[in-house]
Computed example of a mutant assay.
Amino acid sequence: MTARDPSRPATAATPDAPAPATPGVPPPAGVEVAGPTPGGAPPVSERARRRRLTAEIWIVLGLSLGQSAVYAVVNIAARLTAGTPLASQSATLNASRSARPYLDLTYQLLSIGFALVPVALALFLLSANGRSAARRIGLDGSRPGRDLGVGFGLAALIGLPGLALYAVGRAVGITVEVQAAALNAAWWTVPVLVLSALQNALLEEVIVVGYLMERLRELRWRTPAILVTSAVLRGSYHLYQGIGPFVGNVVMGLVFAEYYRRRRRTMPLVVAHTVLDVVAFVGYALIPAAWREALGIR
């Protein structure tokens, strides 16, 4: 970098510094005008920017799926040391919160709504530079037909092997029995299960794929490290279901993360995840209890 000639006025434009603006006089063509730094603060260094982004990631994950991952790790440790085989243990999803139907509905809707707050936070942070976060990560309706098609295709690609992996995991004793829905029967049961599926899809795909991968890319992580980090995080918060679901969700995470890396769209992933969860939640709720007992599903 060329040093400024000390004999020249401090206000003169140099090759290394933009010219100051003169009130009422437009700058010459091609000349960059220096703007005031907010608050007169010095420009942020690259190191400080990286530290801030890293702290932001930890905060977002700590408020959402990172917290779930920590609890899941503790949970699987407790299960493995409980003295009862994993195959004899169970995990319940979408459980009722009250015997009073409308109070239960209120609790369910509040839980779904507050679970989406970290999604709003992640989108807000991604839009800090004025760019639409939804468009940035492809969470929009610009390609509805294609997104639906890809979403259903991904659901089939992941869902069928996932069922097989669950069955194998149960057979070899590394997966707990997962009760996908335990809500009391009511007129709102199926709509709430669908909303729960959509909430899971938005939470996981926006944060674990869209937000996390964008931020790690800004931190200049290598592509393989970004893909593996996203996938392992996805698997980790499913550990409470056993080792089999952890492995299955890591594989799902790699597929979804690679799709996002290539296409920069989370909407097909949200569609796929919603379809998978709706089939699991609603299908489980609609199977008669006698059939579930005959199939060995409680």
Rank of each mutant, 00 (worst) to 15 (best):
1 M>D: 09
1 M>S: 10
2 T>W: 09
3 A>C: 03
3 A>K: 04
4 R>P: 10
7 S>T: 07
9 P>C: 13
10 A>F: 11
10 A>L: 10
11 T>E: 11
15 P>H: 00
22 T>I: 14
22 T>C: 05
23 P>C: 08
24 G>T: 11
31 V>G: 06
32 E>D: 14
34 A>F: 12
35 G>N: 15
35 G>F: 14
45 S>V: 04
48 A>H: 14
52 R>F: 11
52 R>W: 11
56 E>D: 09
58 W>S: 10
59 I>Q: 10
60 V>Y: 10
64 S>Q: 11
67 Q>Y: 13
69 A>S: 04
69 A>W: 04
69 A>M: 02
72 A>V: 02
74 V>A: 15
76 I>A: 09
76 I>M: 12
77 A>V: 15
80 L>A: 09
83 G>H: 05
84 T>D: 12
87 A>C: 09
88 S>K: 12
92 T>N: 08
93 L>W: 07
95 A>C: 04
97 R>K: 06
98 S>K: 06
100 R>H: 10
101 P>K: 09
102 Y>G: 08
102 Y>T: 14
102 Y>D: 12
103 L>I: 09
108 Q>H: 00
113 G>Q: 02
116 L>A: 01
123 L>N: 06
125 L>I: 11
128 A>R: 14
130 G>L: 14
131 R>L: 15
131 R>K: 15
132 S>P: 15
132 S>V: 03
132 S>L: 05
133 A>D: 00
134 A>I: 08
135 R>A: 15
140 D>P: 08
141 G>H: 13
142 S>H: 04
146 R>C: 09
147 D>N: 14
147 D>K: 09
147 D>H: 11
150 V>M: 12
152 F>C: 15
152 F>H: 13
152 F>Q: 12
153 G>T: 10
155 A>R: 01
157 L>N: 04
157 L>S: 04
157 L>T: 12
160 L>R: 01
162 G>E: 12
163 L>K: 07
163 L>H: 07
165 L>M: 04
165 L>Q: 03
171 A>C: 02
175 T>Q: 07
177 E>P: 00
178 V>H: 04
181 A>C: 04
182 A>W: 05
186 A>H: 15
187 W>D: 11
192 V>M: 12
192 V>F: 08
193 L>A: 01
197 A>V: 05
197 A>C: 10
197 A>H: 09
202 L>G: 13
205 E>A: 02
205 E>R: 00
207 I>P: 01
208 V>W: 00
208 V>G: 07
210 G>S: 14
211 Y>L: 11
215 R>M: 07
215 R>S: 08
217 R>M: 07
218 E>S: 03
218 E>R: 00
218 E>G: 02
219 L>C: 04
220 R>S: 09
224 P>Y: 13
225 A>P: 11
226 I>N: 00
227 L>Y: 13
227 L>A: 06
227 L>F: 11
229 T>N: 05
234 R>P: 02
245 P>E: 01
246 F>H: 12
246 F>S: 10
251 V>M: 06
251 V>L: 05
253 G>Q: 01
255 V>W: 05
257 A>C: 07
259 Y>W: 15
261 R>D: 14
263 R>M: 08
263 R>E: 10
268 P>R: 06
270 V>H: 05
271 V>Y: 01
272 A>D: 03
272 A>F: 02
276 L>G: 06
279 V>A: 03
281 F>D: 01
281 F>C: 03
283 G>C: 03
287 I>C: 05
287 I>D: 03
288 P>W: 15
291 W>H: 13
292 R>V: 02
296 G>W: 07
